[in-house]
Design a protein around this nucleic acid. Structure first.
Lengths: 218, 218
DNA sequence: AAAATAGATTAGACCAGGCTAAACTATTGT
DNA sequence: ACAATAGTTTAGCCTGGTCTAATCTATTTT
């Protein structure tokens, strides 16, 4: 049985590797609001238990065992987020911290029943894919909104940054998962972009926002 | 913020006092599967924080603050049990351990929304009362089945012992919360009791079983 | 190539929370 | 009344997980 802190470290390594960055000690520390020295200790312990490979001074890589555990945690986190938003009526910007606690409840049967209860969803309220029981992720071919050209019409598939501020901003502009947008113009000066939702009038999005919106062809 | 272990100790003291027994160190230790010495340490810490009064050699009593906290924990536990049974389809004998973990998730908003989602129930799947937001318990006038006389007809209101074994036994005999029974005969020899459910034929219950069934007038 | 620097690791301390063993209190039996 | 006993507390130790300070390694600058 792993402790909560051990699970958190594995999740952090997984999350950092996901984004293409390598999982360096200081990044993990920042991610978990702890100190680099504590992370080093933990990486050694987790390496001994076989969840990851720790190359001193060159960061950490998950083993198959570690990756599988991380995917189970992601699965639990996203299922609970889905429950909180769809069943209990939380806003999508409020659920992260609570789901963070719930994902550490240990019971395979619980997660399987929750999954069934929610209708075995493939995506969470932020549009992120939910791994299945075996850790398989359903992939979609998405791109970032800031890589789109004027004239394209796309649907919002996911938000890749779940800070409260961004989620509330999107909410206030009426941008949800599934919203369809036409890209009208991209300004070279600051990378900002004029978009027009299917229903409603056009407005502008800064690059900071469009960078974090994953879109797909409608 | 209290740790999980601190919360568990407060809950144990509350539970022991509920049953009329006084909360002695060894009982708490047994209840939490820990050692008396560890309990003494914890009682001192909790007394300093104002959750209970610790009279050395004479056990512990909760303060108002401690009782209020215990009631919040009981509320969370019973609401999660209700969710697990009514929404996820768990059997009533399977939910205790999982609810034990979920009750430590900290979010008042979560509990309030869960309560609303479940229709603000007053009793959990074992028939135990669920304290409201302010810690008020709805009381019923119940008695133990083993105190009933032949000829009485009563309804099962609660099961006061939630071991898997007892719950499965009741399940197999078709005894649920709400089942109505007629007491036919009580045998002085061993305290066993012949009962007849409204629908179905009579059978015998040992005193060990009837002792843990809370019943009310139908 | 040597110096400077960013980052990682080690060493050593601390705290919470658990344990065992020994010492202490209260109660019970004779 | 005093010895035995049941139960509680104290003292001291251990582990997991955190920290700071000091040291070490790799990289970048000059």
């Amino acid at each position: 049985m792993l402790t909560r802190s051990e699970e958190d470290h594995i999740k952090a390594v997984y999350a950092l590797l996901q984004e293409g960055e390598s999982a360096f000690t200081k990044d993990i520390a920042e991610c978990l609001r702890t100190k680099a020295s504590s992370v080093t200790d933990m990486l050694k312990r987790l390496a001994e238990k076989g969840y990851l490979k720790h190359e001193p001074y060159y960061g950490a890589k998950l083993t198959a065992k570690g990756r599988s555990l991380a995917l189970q945690l992601v699965r639990k986190h996203r299922l609970w987020e889905t429950f909180l938003v769809e069943r209990l009526g939380f806003g999508w910007d409020e659920v992260h911290d609570v789901a963070e606690q719930m994902e550490h409840v240990a019971s395979d049967k619980l997660i399987d029943k929750l999954d069934a209860y929610l209708g075995r969803p493939h995506f969470d309220p932020h549009g992120d894919p939910i791994p299945d029981r075996n850790g398989k992720l359903r992939q979609r071919k998405t791109k970032r909104l800031d890589s789109c050209k004027p004239g394209e019409t796309v649907r919002i598939a996911a938000v890749s940054e779940t800070t409260d501020g961004l989620l509330r901003l999107l909410d206030s502009k009426g941008l949800r998962i599934g919203t369809t947008l036409a890209v009208q113009e991209v300004h070279a000066f600051d990378g900002s972009m004029d978009v027009k939702p299917k229903s409603g009038s056009a407005f502008s999005l800064s690059k900071d926002v469009s960078h974090h919106l994953q879109v797909e062809n409608p």
